[in-house]
Design a binder for these strands. Sequence first.
DNA 1: CTGAAAGCGCTTACAG
DNA 2: CTGAAAGCGCTTACAG
Lengths: 336, 336
Amino acid sequence: MEENKKKVTLKDIAAKTGLSVNTVSRVLNKKPYYTKEVEEKVNAACRELGYIVDMNASGLRSGSTHTIAIIFDDLINPFYSFTTDIISKRFEEKGYNSIIFSNNGRSAYVDYELIRRVIARKPDGILSFLEPDAETADFIKGTGIPFIIFGRDGSPYGMRGVNADEVSAGRTAGEHLYSCGYRNFAYIGSWHDIKVCLDRQNGFCEALAAHGVQLKEDKIFYIREQDFDEMIDKLVADGIDGIFCFNDIIAFIVVQALEQRGKEAGIDYGIVGCDNIQRMMRMPGFLTTIDAGCEEFAETGAEVMLHLLAGDAEELPSFSATHSPFLVQGRSTKQR
Amino acid sequence: MEENKKKVTLKDIAAKTGLSVNTVSRVLNKKPYYTKEVEEKVNAACRELGYIVDMNASGLRSGSTHTIAIIFDDLINPFYSFTTDIISKRFEEKGYNSIIFSNNGRSAYVDYELIRRVIARKPDGILSFLEPDAETADFIKGTGIPFIIFGRDGSPYGMRGVNADEVSAGRTAGEHLYSCGYRNFAYIGSWHDIKVCLDRQNGFCEALAAHGVQLKEDKIFYIREQDFDEMIDKLVADGIDGIFCFNDIIAFIVVQALEQRGKEAGIDYGIVGCDNIQRMMRMPGFLTTIDAGCEEFAETGAEVMLHLLAGDAEELPSFSATHSPFLVQGRSTKQR
DNA sequence: CTGAAAGCGCTTACAG
DNA sequence: CTGAAAGCGCTTACAG
């Protein structure tokens, strides 16, 4: 056991085998040119002494840390945690470890302060659930580090994004609520300036407009930006009966608040979320929601990153082009 | 922008300021002995050139990587993702980044293969949601790296654990189900050899035994080890009416399966989960569950690790000694 | 096929 | 208060 206490380095393996540090390194990295005999000697010594490479040292010299930075708001939202789980496991299979960063709720953006901490780790790639602010986007591009925005459209920033068809998601929600017979609608977003939030909103409005319903501005809310109780009061006062929320978490919060006001989802009003986090957690499907196909979404994100790391930026898979969000019926909406 | 493309190193700052690399480093690390004038010159140059330290290089030399490895099964279970979120944010605040590892469902344990990959990153500390197998536990102790098992009792391994009072959690569930009037009980665990699973089971059995009810072995199930449909069939055939599940996820899965057999939770039978993941996600409380106080649990875990990193292993906070799990009533159990 | 040297970007002793 | 040198543990040229 004491052997483990002191760090075993290549030098120790070299000493033990009588080979040079260089040769040992070559064997361990499976670089061409060594005899079977040498290979076995090295492997035996490594096993015996319990050698474990120091990836920080190897990364420093080789320039590749085999680290990928993953940036998100929080892991509380199952959309983040579920996809992070899939993505990080895919990375791990390919020899990349994930180092996680959050903006800790400071803002909806990746700012310069955050990206500095990321870059200090010298990741081979960065996968961000959050959009960079304009200044930071330029900085990131300047570093040349492969960067993808996951779950959001990258084009406004001139960056690579892996995203779902969010407008279609909103449209599907609007279509459904209208066809159920609801007529007094509201949209509850997160932030007014986040593209994915606006895309869902626009799709929703579009579907309603096709039925001649104009969603007025005072029926559009941003839960992160305004007083919550006032918002709920207004929903009740206005007799809103068809609500589309930016995501399931928001929908659940609204359902709870309305319950306290004596309004029951699926009875007194209809509400649709987005993400289908219930399926992720194998929960009974209470909430009607829009499912984008999270697993494949995450797989595509991982794949795109791995492509970039391998240096083939041509022919990257696209998610939004091949997958359409679909409605999952729960008990929170009903045919009237 | 082109400036960013080439890596800016201490050497560049030294050249720009006319100081030595050493002095620049000292200023940036706020080591004693430099003039205000020098400090300002250095900071100005760093800002201008966009200097960002290379933590891999600094870690290699100093021996401290400011990295903490977090090991879990998956991030799908909100207990893992919620606490990981809190813990990693606390670490980040103190200048430690988290690098995540999973056993990818291979086993319920941290095995040697996994810990090798962890050690290769030279983390300053390791926080694991999973127990090590016996051989690996010895290896970990030998490394001398601060290690804590989070959410599990560490004593069987002679390691530090931060855990809740799981026996009490089970007892509370049993107490509740009995007092509701249910009389035909079952426990549904995950793995038969995981201590936290057994602790909850034992607490449950203990509470029932206090009322003269003996939970027979064929009423104890392990969802990860046996055929699911057979298990559900048996629950129905045996007329089980009071179920305690190791965690909420399992409870939800069981609720769904029984729903398909025409049995409704709260009406036809009572079911209690554990963890209160509904609260974490701000969902309406459908499931009756045992809440351990996840936030404080996570905070305590982070605190213990930070204490260890700071070198003061005396007076570590304990969670189980100061917090008791409590019942949260949902609609999945009712007074008969 | 193998080895001696240099260097990745830092920080740590040590000198002055 | 500042600097020149050594070294963390590796991998990358380069020589043989």
